[in-house]
Amino acid sequence: MIRAFVGLRIPDEVTRELVAFQAGLPAGRPVPPENLHLTLAFLGEHPEPVIEDAHHALSGIRSARFEVSLHGLDLMGGSRAQALGILAEPNPELAALNGRVRQAARMAGIELGRERYTPHVTLARFARIPGGDDGQRLRDFTARGASLRAGPFLVESFFLIRSWLGQSGAIYDDLAEYALG
């Protein structure tokens, strides 16, 4: 079985900006720089032939290159937030690529959830949202981050990425890259 997702890699200069911001996190486990990405679709865990079918379907996606800008922090997951992310600014090209990726996954026989797509880069994860003073520091940090900006950056490709879950977090391995433009 292969656990995989489709996403955008974050360029080095934007990664440096995000890592500098992570340095002030009052709580949570920062996402390592090499794992910072913007998910287009989480495919889940499937047998290798299904992931190969997804690869072939993803290979057929055609899209122009486009820019993405990141702006503002949000606790992801509502009242039971498990992550802190920086949001992608609304972008019709990004939304269209997400739609094409989801369609390719369906063509490969992968059923995806119906949740609303909120493009973001996860900066930190929480076992649970801290309470008390730690919780207040996190809420203050998130409020201060409302004006945080990173990018823009040019999206020239997207990736099929394998996710290995380990004791100290996920390890990502690029399975395929798909050029845009």
Score class of each variant (00 low, 15 high):
residue 3 R to T: 09
residue 4 A to G: 09
residue 4 A to V: 08
residue 4 A to F: 11
residue 5 F to E: 06
residue 5 F to K: 13
residue 11 P to A: 04
residue 11 P to R: 05
residue 14 V to T: 06
residue 15 T to Y: 02
residue 16 R to H: 14
residue 22 Q to F: 01
residue 23 A to Q: 15
residue 24 G to K: 07
residue 27 A to M: 12
residue 27 A to F: 12
residue 29 R to P: 11
residue 31 V to D: 09
residue 32 P to D: 13
residue 32 P to Q: 14
residue 36 L to F: 02
residue 36 L to I: 03
residue 38 L to F: 02
residue 44 G to T: 11
residue 44 G to E: 10
residue 46 H to A: 12
residue 48 E to R: 09
residue 53 D to S: 12
residue 53 D to K: 12
residue 54 A to H: 13
residue 55 H to A: 08
residue 56 H to T: 02
residue 58 L to K: 08
residue 58 L to D: 02
residue 60 G to K: 14
residue 64 A to V: 03
residue 65 R to C: 03
residue 71 H to K: 09
residue 72 G to R: 10
residue 73 L to R: 10
residue 74 D to R: 15
residue 76 M to Y: 11
residue 76 M to G: 03
residue 77 G to D: 04
residue 79 S to G: 07
residue 79 S to K: 14
residue 80 R to S: 11
residue 85 G to R: 08
residue 86 I to A: 00
residue 87 L to W: 10
residue 92 P to T: 05
residue 92 P to M: 02
residue 92 P to N: 03
residue 95 A to G: 02
residue 95 A to N: 03
residue 97 L to C: 09
residue 99 G to K: 05
residue 100 R to W: 01
residue 101 V to T: 03
residue 101 V to Q: 07
residue 101 V to S: 04
residue 106 R to K: 15
residue 108 A to K: 09
residue 108 A to R: 08
residue 108 A to F: 10
residue 109 G to C: 06
residue 111 E to P: 00
residue 115 E to Q: 10
residue 120 H to F: 00
residue 120 H to D: 00
residue 120 H to C: 00
residue 120 H to L: 00
residue 125 R to Y: 08
residue 125 R to I: 07
residue 129 I to S: 01
residue 130 P to G: 05
residue 132 G to D: 06
residue 134 D to C: 00
residue 136 Q to M: 01
residue 137 R to P: 07
residue 137 R to E: 12
residue 138 L to A: 03
residue 140 D to S: 05
residue 141 F to K: 10
residue 141 F to N: 08
residue 142 T to D: 01
residue 142 T to A: 13
residue 150 A to H: 07
residue 151 G to R: 14
residue 151 G to M: 14
residue 152 P to T: 12
residue 157 S to H: 02
residue 158 F to E: 11
residue 160 L to P: 03
residue 161 I to D: 11
residue 164 W to Q: 06
residue 166 G to K: 05
residue 167 Q to T: 13
residue 168 S to L: 00
residue 168 S to W: 01
residue 169 G to R: 05
residue 170 A to R: 04
residue 171 I to E: 14
residue 173 D to G: 06
residue 173 D to P: 04
residue 174 D to H: 09
residue 174 D to V: 12
residue 177 E to G: 04
residue 179 A to Q: 15
residue 180 L to T: 07
residue 180 L to Y: 11
residue 180 L to P: 01
